[in-house]
């Protein structure tokens, strides 16, 4: 029921921004197109796919909004979207954008630094940054890894490095934050969104003890987490690792109603839709 209502809203305007009535942005539009595609609404999903293709720069990257080609971190989500559309719709309309997008992902790298006793993670590993010329962080890395895995490039050197970074950035006690484990000897706090995205990207990888602890953290954190982005991505990550949360349907119904009442962004509705899809969400890549 929730999924039906979400789809009805998003189909009316599949190009969505971060805020209600804000101009379309790449990340929310990817989530919308992925949802519509998984639900079999190919015509609406293709509107998102086409818009993203129009946003693609000559170097293959996709910026945060059409008028803003930089930074380029949404490229992984765009490639994931085109791959999903191609797979579901059964045609090769997006072959060229996919190829160019993958080429950009495979060459893009975060800035490395020598090992430093002040920080706990391994800064010599080059995954993906939010913005060019900066260090690699958890969420952009997870997005590019998801695209590479969907493109069956899991064994590529870049994908393996991305996975190594996501494993390395997990806190000893479980969970991830934006990407620092310890600073000046103190372990930092985990947060749901980076933990969820990292675990989505790590689904299908052999489970390390630290990954199990991250899943445990997520399971506990979600019991008290009412924020839509955190809860929905967290639920998907648990699903991707074969874990289930209780009362999900009831929560999704109330979250949908609250989002509509507050006239919040359709981005939140798309996230609710993905959580309602569960295993069938294209964000679950095993």
């Amino acid at each position: 029921m929730v999924l039906h209502d979400v789809l009805e809203t998003i189909q009316r305007q599949p190009l969505i921004g971060y805020g209600s009535n804000w101009k379309p942005a790449s990340e929310p539009t990817c989530y919308a197109a992925l949802l519509l595609s998984a639900a079999g609404e190919y015509a609406s999903a293709a509107l998102g796919g086409e818009w993203l293709a129009e946003c693609q720069a000559n170097d293959g990257s996709v910026g945060v909004r059409r008028e803003e080609p930089e930074p380029r971190w949404p490229t992984g989500l765009a490639v994931l979207t085109w791959l999903t559309l191609q797979e579901h719709a059964g045609h090769r309309r997006y072959a060229a954008p996919i190829e160019r997008g993958l080429r950009w992902i495979l060459q893009a790298k975060g800035k490395t630094q020598p090992r430093n006793p002040q920080t706990g993670h391994d800064p010599t590993l080059a995954a993906w940054p939010w913005a060019e010329g900066t260090h690699s962080w958890v969420e952009p890395t997870a997005m590019q890894v998801l695209a590479l895995r969907r493109a069956r490039l899991s064994d590529s050197e870049r994908c393996r490095t991305g996975i190594a970074v996501l494993q390395d950035r997990q806190l000893e006690s479980g969970g991830l934050n934006y990407g620092n484990t310890t600073v000046l000897g103190q372990e930092l706090r985990p947060h749901v969104v980076p933990t969820a995205l990292a675990l989505l990207a790590l689904a299908g990888e052999p489970s390390l003890p630290r990954t199990t602890r991250s899943l445990d953290y997520l399971e506990t954190a979600l019991t008290t987490q009412p924020a839509v982005m955190s809860r929905c991505l967290g639920l998907l990550a648990l699903t991707a690792h074969g874990r289930t949360a209780t009362d999900t349907q009831a929560w999704l119904s109330s979250a949908f109603a609250a989002t509509v009442t507050r006239n919040d962004s359709a981005f939140k509705l798309a996230l609710i839709g993905h959580a309602a899809l569960g295993e069938s969400s294209p964000l679950v890549v095993r």
Binding site: Y18, W130, A131, Y178
Partner: peptide, 14 residues
Amino acid sequence: PGVKYGWPKNVLHH
């Protein structure tokens, strides 16, 4: 804005 500078706003750090 994080959407342009990242989380953390690492462009500023660099």
